[in-house]
């Protein structure tokens, strides 16, 4: 059984069609990259998967680990192991990274009928995971994302990913706004977390990230659909030729 199965997904925002029949299947152990020009619907896809309210689901189904995702609240999707690394991570006042993560980890453990982690174990795990993204200890006591630089926010997303150990992680333009060093740190973090049991959907504009997080599949999202799919070489082709050839090809099919 595939981990994620999206079938003929059609989604509107304020009456405007954004996704127009998108299908995608992701299996455990796989990394899928979704690329595409601005406004093609990439972030909408991420938002729909996570359960953001602003969308109108017109048609189609999404199964996550065999369950109909539309019947699950955003928090239950997270507890079942769906993680979204936000394109624009949110700042939370007055809550330290540490207590935020402790609450999240223990909520998820409770959902899975596991005992809450005690303070010592939690601290140990947290320090371990912080190292994965080269996060300083002081980072943990600061309010979530408040006063963080763009790079720090993105590293914090990957730190949270490492803490929560999801089955499926969606990285929504995690590379945007990162310099090359931060990009390497973030990618390294992801590579250390990946294994044969989890899967990643990496949404990005640029091939650059895919040098570090090497995908098994690359899809091009255009006009609300995945119009071209291929192996990692497709990313290089896009980098070289841009998206125009796809637009032309696609539009000629339409005409």
């Amino acid at each position: 059984m595939s981990l994620l199965k999206i079938d003929n997904l059609k989604v509107n925002i304020n009456g405007k069609e954004i996704l127009k029949g998108l299908s995608l299947e992701v299996n455990r152990g796989e990394i899928h990259a979704i690329m595409g020009p601005n406004g093609s619907g990439k972030s909408t896809l991420a938002g729909v998967l996570a359960g953001k309210e602003d969308y109108e689901i017109v048609e189609g189904t999404i199964e996550f680990d065999g369950r109909n995702i539309f019947e699950m609240s955003p928090e239950d999707r997270a507890r079942e192991g769906l993680f979204l690394a936000f394109q624009y991570p949110i700042e939370i006042p007055c809550v330290s990274n540490a207590s935020f993560m402790k609450t999240a980890v223990n909520e998820i453990r409770k959902y899975r009928n596991q005992e809450p982690l005690d303070a010592m174990d939690f601290l140990r795990i947290m320090k371990e995971k912080a190292k994965l993204v080269e996060m300083d200890q002081s980072f943990l006591n600061r309010s979530v994302n408040q006063g963080f630089s763009g790079g720090e926010k993105k590293r914090n997303e990957i730190f949270q990913l490492a803490m929560l150990e999801p089955k499926l992680a969606i990285l929504d333009e995690t590379d945007s706004g990162l310099d090359i060093d931060a990009l390497k740190i973030v990618s390294n973090g992801v590579n250390k977390v990946r294994n044969t049991e989890n899967a990643f959907v990496v949404i990005t504009h640029y091939q650059r990230l895919l040098n570090y997080i090497v995908p098994d599949f690359v899809h091009v999202l255009f006009d609300g659909k995945l119009v071209v799919s291929g192996g990692k070489e497709l990313a290089f082709e896009l980098e070289e030729r841009g998206y125009d050839w796809i637009k032309k090809q696609y539009n000629s099919v339409l005409v």
């Binding site: 996570a50 928090e75 507890r79 979204l84 949110i90 939370i92 909520e107």
Partner: peptide, 29 residues
């Protein structure tokens, strides 16, 4: 500061219910 919908959704996405998210922020505050 304001507890916005975006903050609550972010907490939800990490497995934290809306009530617990508010409790967490209010207690921290």
């Amino acid at each position: 500061s304001k507890i916005s919908e975006d903050i609550l959704f972010y907490c939800n996405q990490r497995g934290i219910s809306t009530e617990d998210a508010i409790g967490l922020i209010v207690n921290g505050f």
